[in-house]
Amino acid sequence: MNAALFPDLVVNGERVPHALVAAETQNQTAPAGKPGIAWRKAANAVTIRTLLLQEARLCRIEAEPLEFGPGRFETQEEALIRGLLDQAINVVPPTEADITSEWLKDPTRFRSPPLWEVSHILCACDPRNEADRAKVQIRAQGLLALVLSDPKSLPAIATRESDCGSRSSGGALGQLGPNDTLPEFEAALRQLAEGEISPEPVLTRHGYHIIRMDAVALGQVLPFEAVRDRIAEAMEKTSWARRSRAFIAQLVEAADIQGADLNRV
């Protein structure tokens, strides 16, 4: 193993097994052919987890794993870290004045869910297969060019070319709301005005989509009373995240770390 590319990780004198860092690389993104970047990201993540566990042991934290889903429990390490952060981080709930001030910044941010009426053409592929993805992307771009040249042709092209069952209805998906479709698809919907077509094919796990926004019903602006609790919860979460970052930064500052650089990707 290349020691310069994959150095040993030692945190406050505790040597971390290479296997732990290697396992964590699966959760990190990096350009193809650059394993060193994924390793550095993984080493940083494992370093922070190790520091938190060391602090939990030092503080004699005791915490039982919680169930976060049917038959799904925290690991003992996750429970210890949660217990440590619960003890170390104290978030003061925002005052009514703070909540009102946040709402007044832009009341139009708080709306009932929108509804989108959508049509699409699907060019199916497995995104994990690079050769298949590249070939299907070319096909999708060709179909998109046809649709952009004549937007009214989308139903006919969808009926003839789409790999989705909606081809039987000219690509019409009907009305969709938030969380009704895949995140990438929804993100594209949020960028389209009524009558617009996605400027590029949109990739999801199903393949490439050419999307047309047929109609938009924007959600109504909600009164303060309806969103007060939501704003308070968001403010508390933001405060907790800020304080937790500061707590971790203190641990990093005081630590002796070899094999990771938390100031670098």
Rank of each mutant, 00 (worst) to 15 (best):
residue 201 P to L: 06
residue 178 P to L: 06
residue 174 G to H: 08
residue 210 I to D: 06
residue 203 L to K: 14
residue 197 I to S: 00
residue 226 A to H: 13
residue 215 A to Q: 08
residue 205 R to D: 07
residue 221 V to H: 15
residue 184 E to K: 08
residue 192 L to W: 00
residue 204 T to M: 03
residue 193 A to V: 00
residue 198 S to H: 06
residue 226 A to R: 15
residue 217 A to H: 15
residue 218 L to C: 15
residue 218 L to E: 13
residue 191 Q to K: 09
residue 205 R to V: 07
residue 168 S to D: 07
residue 173 L to I: 02
residue 221 V to D: 09
residue 195 G to A: 10
residue 191 Q to P: 01
residue 195 G to L: 12
residue 192 L to G: 03
residue 210 I to W: 05
residue 217 A to T: 15
residue 197 I to P: 00
residue 172 A to Q: 02
residue 201 P to K: 14
residue 218 L to T: 11
residue 216 V to S: 14
residue 189 L to I: 03
residue 223 P to W: 11
residue 175 Q to H: 10
residue 221 V to M: 11
residue 219 G to E: 07
residue 177 G to F: 05
residue 184 E to Y: 05
residue 198 S to G: 09
residue 188 A to R: 00
residue 193 A to M: 05
residue 176 L to R: 02
residue 183 P to G: 07
residue 198 S to E: 02
residue 214 D to C: 03
residue 190 R to P: 00
residue 210 I to T: 08
residue 208 Y to F: 11
residue 184 E to I: 04
residue 224 F to H: 15
residue 217 A to Y: 14
residue 226 A to D: 13
residue 210 I to M: 07
residue 206 H to L: 14
residue 215 A to Y: 05
residue 183 P to L: 03
residue 199 P to M: 04
residue 204 T to D: 01
residue 169 S to W: 05
residue 220 Q to K: 12
residue 222 L to A: 13
residue 168 S to T: 13
residue 201 P to G: 13
residue 183 P to S: 12
residue 183 P to W: 01
residue 179 N to Q: 12
residue 220 Q to A: 12
residue 198 S to M: 02
residue 190 R to V: 01
residue 172 A to I: 01
residue 172 A to H: 00
residue 211 I to H: 01
residue 190 R to W: 01
residue 185 F to L: 09
residue 174 G to Q: 07
residue 179 N to I: 01
residue 199 P to K: 06
residue 192 L to R: 04
residue 179 N to F: 09
residue 172 A to F: 01
residue 191 Q to A: 00
residue 205 R to Q: 09
residue 195 G to T: 11
residue 172 A to R: 02
residue 178 P to N: 15
residue 203 L to T: 13
residue 197 I to Y: 00
residue 174 G to R: 08
residue 196 E to H: 05
residue 217 A to K: 15
residue 173 L to C: 10
residue 217 A to P: 04
residue 223 P to D: 12
residue 191 Q to M: 03
residue 174 G to V: 05
residue 214 D to W: 02
residue 208 Y to G: 07
residue 187 A to C: 12
residue 169 S to L: 08
residue 195 G to E: 10
residue 196 E to D: 10
residue 208 Y to I: 06
residue 209 H to I: 00
residue 213 M to T: 10
residue 180 D to W: 04
residue 217 A to S: 09
residue 196 E to C: 03
residue 189 L to M: 07
residue 199 P to C: 04
residue 213 M to P: 11
residue 194 E to N: 11
residue 178 P to H: 08
residue 178 P to K: 11
residue 178 P to T: 09
residue 206 H to D: 08
residue 183 P to M: 04
residue 186 E to L: 08
residue 216 V to F: 10
residue 225 E to P: 02
residue 189 L to S: 02
residue 182 L to H: 15
residue 171 G to F: 00
residue 214 D to E: 15
residue 190 R to C: 04
residue 189 L to C: 11
residue 190 R to M: 05
residue 203 L to A: 10
residue 172 A to K: 02
residue 200 E to S: 00
residue 168 S to K: 14
residue 177 G to E: 10
residue 168 S to P: 00
residue 199 P to F: 00
residue 177 G to D: 06
residue 216 V to C: 14
residue 169 S to N: 14
residue 202 V to F: 02
residue 224 F to P: 08
residue 173 L to F: 03
residue 222 L to P: 11
